[in-house]
């Protein structure tokens, strides 16, 4: 069985072999194939840039792997910022001894996700560290996107009365990773929601959106708290409206976790002016990644900076940010 050796990161012959037999084969495009020290990209004015590093353990999980995740993470950060993702860079840190077949599986998945998200990998770098100095593979991706013109969104645009939508169930990624890591088995296994969101967001971006965020680490609860604090508004969620798989609810109950604090990798929180809410919700539901989209709450003037939850019985309670860390290396 072939393994990664320190020579694969030396810049010498084995590095070149790796680039040609693996990276160009799976990720090839005119920018990458020039194999220059830098790629020259076309732009038309302003660009959006985002970067993210991926250290998830395990590398493969139900619904995804580190390759897919490293495309989705950066693509989604660009997309929720109102940009159209176009290009990604790819930085790899490999541990000596990593099986070549594992690397190939990851790169193949990364390539398939990039095609799905319609982004091109335009440059890359590979380093190999001695065994024990990294855990198999760490990935960094930096993404470039084109901001949509005339579509300024962000917390400063959020107003009391705006409606809060989400495109589906909460916490699937968090529980999928946790169950792989801790060997928990459920009757219906939970699959990570890891997916590129740009084609979903394309459906409704022009429809009165005031703010969007992807609730990754820290979950819906932490992300909405951030927006509420930045926007100086209050927010109230309706417990009965929160989409949640019964398996995820059961796992949370068992483990003492709050699904509002669990990580998602294919969810977007959309805050929209009240008049446009129904249209956006309908457009979300017509897309495969939004079939279970729901209206989950409202922005209010009261309790600025705070996120509240109205329970099924009508009591209100505070939803805080995630304190500490549920689980390291979840993405």
């Amino acid at each position: 069985m072939e393994h990664i050796t320190l020579a694969h990161g030396s810049g010498g012959k084995l590095s070149h072999q790796l680039i040609e037999s693996l990276f160009c084969r799976y990720l090839g495009n005119p920018y990458l194939e020039q194999l220059n020290d830098a790629s020259i990209l076309p732009t038309s004015g302003r660009i959006a840039v985002s970067t993210d590093s991926f250290v998830i353990s395990p590398l493969f999980f139900r619904g995804g792997d580190i390759g897919k995740l490293s495309v989705c993470g950066t693509v989604n950060d660009l997309a929720v910022s109102g940009a159209i993702p176009k290009f990604l860079t790819l930085g790899l840190i490999l541990e000596e001894g990593l099986e070549m077949a594992v690397l190939e599986r990851i790169i193949a998945s990364l390539a398939a996700t990039a095609r799905q998200a319609q982004v091109q990998i335009v440059c890359g770098d590979t380093k190999v560290v001695e065994r024990g100095n990294a855990d198999k593979i760490f990935i960094n991706t930096t993404g470039i996107g084109y901001p949509r013109t005339g579509a300024e969104i962000g917390p400063q645009k959020v107003r009391p009365g705006d409606v809060i939508l989400i495109n589906g169930t909460m916490g699937d990624h968090g529980i999928a990773i946790l169950s792989e890591r801790e060997g928990l088995e459920f009757e219906t296994p939970v699959t990570s929601d890891c997916a590129p969101l740009n084609s979903l967001i394309d459906q409704f971006f022009d429809q009165g959106i005031t703010c969007m965020r992807d609730p990754t680490r820290g979950g819906v609860g932490t992300t909405l708290n951030e927006i509420a604090q930045q926007a100086g508004v209050g927010m109230i969620l309706e417990e009965e409206a929160l989409p949640l798989r019964p398996e995820v609810a059961g796992a949370c109950d068992m483990l003492g976790l709050d699904p509002l604090h669990l990580a998602n990798e294919g969810k977007v929180l959309v805050i929209v002016a009240p008049a446009a809410a129904a249209t956006v919700l309908e457009k979300m539901r017509r897309h495969p990644l939004g079939a279970q989209a729901a209206r989950i709450g409202t922005v209010q003037a009261e309790d600025p900076g705070r996120l509240l939850l109205r329970t099924a019985l009508g009591a209100k309670r505070l939803v805080g940010m995630l304190e500490g860390e549920h689980l390291p290396r979840i993405c």
Binding site: E239, E240, L244, A249, D258, P259, L260, T311, A312
Partner: peptide, 13 residues
């Protein structure tokens, strides 16, 4: 997280 309440449970509560 509080459990999701079935309609009949809500009525009982």
């Amino acid at each position: 997280m509080p459990e999701k309440m079935e309609h009949k449970d809500k009525a009982r509560a």
